[in-house]
């Protein structure tokens, strides 16, 4: 990142505890929460930088949130930073999950539990849509880039194509759009 001057550079322990928090409050999809904490609360990365790291995280194989945590941890504090961020991200939720696995074996079929889960799922879907709307609004994309974004949306939500096809198929178009927009601006 060439424009990090003047913005805080987190320590290893700050990376660990911030990612621990992201993991533990990360209900309904951790990427929306990571963006909120890293961009809006901590100001460690800009909206554009976060979106770029997430884009790279999708092209790299493996869980997106993990790929983002490792890349940001590495940029700020090298190998230790990457380790701190990823252990923080997975450590807390894993403990919660052990508890849930035990509880679910006992209470998973209780109607009230199912109703609460259904309501939460509906709200979580809205949280993800609201986050996407917020990012789009903040980035103000040029029209070729917007077109690639809409193509990804349609390919995923309407055509239901497998994600690897969408990512690998649209990435070249996105890069072309970014190149063209950069040239048009220059």
């Amino acid at each position: 990142m060439s424009d990090t001057a003047g913005r805080p550079r987190p320590t290893v322990s700050a990376l660990f505890f911030t990612y621990l928090r992201i993991g533990l409050i990360g209900f309904g999809g951790v990427n929306a929460w990571a963006r909120r904490v890293l961009v809006e609360e901590r100001g460690w990365v800009t909206e554009q930088e976060y979106a770029e790291v997430l884009g790279l995280g999708q092209v790299l194989p493996g869980p997106n949130a993990l790929n983002v945590a490792i890349q940001l941890g590495e940029r700020f504090r090298g190998g230790l930073g990457a380790l701190a961020a990823s252990v923080g991200l997975f450590g807390g939720p894993m403990l919660v999950l052990v508890g849930l696995a035990i509880l679910h074996d006992a209470y998973g079929e209780v109607p009230l539990v199912k109703a609460v889960l259904a309501g939460t799922a509906a709200a979580a879907a809205g949280m993800i849509l609201g986050t996407a709307a917020r990012i789009t609004q903040n980035l103000k994309p040029a029209w070729p880039i917007l077109a690639v974004g809409i193509a990804a949306l349609v390919a995923g939500a309407v055509l239901r194509l497998p994600l690897p096809w969408i990512v690998l198929g649209l990435a070249p178009l996105g890069i072309l759009a970014a190149w063209w927009s950069g040239r048009a601006r220059a």
Binding site: L54, L139, V148, A152, L153, G174, G182
Partner: peptide, 16 residues
């Protein structure tokens, strides 16, 4: 920069 619209489009898609 080119990967950004794919990333954001897929967030919309998973939300839908």
């Amino acid at each position: 920069k080119g990967l950004v619209p794919v990333a954001v489009g897929l967030i919309f898609s998973s939300g839908i």
